[in-house]
């Protein structure tokens, strides 16, 4: 393999790790706010690492510009959606989980 392919594979593996970690957090965490914290990692780190690995593999072409467009837009849009969901849950009246409460 070329060195640039090895570098691309490393970035793809890092992004897949963050995706799996976000899914495990969606399963194991006890309430709404902590689950939202876990899935925010998928929105930023997993997406950016996987698309950056594809950009390194592709080299300089117009496909790189499109990939940069997708990644930069969702890097702004994902945390904004997460914050809107958190505020909607807080206004609606969901209590945060404390130690000793029941997990739901």
């Amino acid at each position: 393999m070329l060195p640039i392919e090895i570098l691309s594979t490393i970035f793809l593996a890092g992004g897949a790790f963050f995706m799996i970690a976000g899914t495990a957090g969606l399963y194991k965490f006890p309430d709404f706010y902590t689950r939202l914290h876990a899935t925010g990692k998928c929105d930023t780190m997993g997406q950016v690492l996987i698309i950056f690995g594809c950009m390194i593999y592709e080299g300089w072409s117009y496909i790189t510009i499109k990939l940069l467009l997708v990644s930069a837009f969702y890097l702004l849009a994902g945390p904004a959606g997460t914050h809107a969901l958190m505020k909607a849950g807080y206004v609606t009246g969901i209590k945060p989980w404390k130690k000793g409460d029941q997990r739901n």
Binding site: L26, F32, T39, D43, Q47, G81, L85, T92
Partner: peptide, 18 residues
């Protein structure tokens, strides 16, 4: 509840893009 389902749908959308 509703909000756990919305969180799951949001993260499914992110993964579908990737």
């Amino acid at each position: 509840g509703t909000f756990n389902r919305i969180v799951a749908a949001n993260v499914i959308g992110t993964k579908a893009i990737v």
